[in-house]
Amino acid sequence: MSRTKRIALCGMLSALALALSLMERMIPLELLIPIPGIKLGLANVVTMFALLFLSPKEAYSILLCRVVLASLFAGSVTQFLFSLMGGLLALTTTWLLLHWHDRWFSFYGISAASAAMHNFGQILAAMLVMQTVDVIAYLPLLLVSSIPMGFVTGTILEVLQKHMRHLRLTSRDNAM
C-alpha cells in the first residue's frame, strides 16, 4: 500500500471511529451506571481493525485522533480522560494478544479482553477524577458486558477479515 493510501485510510478510519464514538453517546449507559461519560467502547472496533490491517503506530495515532476530536466535539476533559485510558488499555491489550492470534485466541476472545480492558480503563480514570475508590462497584457489571461486546466486535472483525482478502487494501506487512 502506498504511503498516501495509508494516510488516507488512517484519516477515514479516524473519522469512522469518531462517528462511532459520537453515536455511542446515544446509548444511555448512564441510566444504568451513573458515571458521567461512560461508554460501551464501540469505536474500538476501528482501532482493532487498524492493528490488523495497518500497523501499531497507525492504530495508536488513530486512537489519539479519535479521542481528541471526540472530546473537542462533544465532551469534556473528563470525557477525554475516560476515552484515553480506556482506549489505550484496550489497544495495548489487543496488540499484545494478536501475537498469539489463530493459535490461542480468536477475534472473539481478543475483542472481549479488549472491551474488558477498556472498561477497566474507564473506571480507573473515574477513580482519579472523582477521587474515590468506590466507583469500582460498577466494574463487575461492565466486565460482564465485555463478553457480549467481544462477540459483537469479534464478529465484525471476522467478517471484515474474510472480505478484506478480496480488496487490495491489505498488505503483507500488518501487525502480525
Binding site: 498469539w100 493459535r103 476472545g109 481478543i110 479482553a113 474488558a116 466494574l139 463487575p140 457489571l141 460482564v144
Partner: peptide
C-alpha cells in the same frame, strides 16, 4: 462462517468473569 473459539478465548472469558465475581464479592 465457523465460530472457531480457541482455548485462549475461554481463558479470557473465565478471567473476566472471575474478576467480576471477585470484585463483586469483595464489595
Amino acid at each position: 462462517t465457523k465460530l472457531r473459539l480457541r482455548w485462549g478465548d475461554f481463558l479470557i472469558f473465565l478471567a473476566i468473569i472471575a474478576a467480576a465475581c471477585g470484585i463483586w464479592i469483595h464489595l
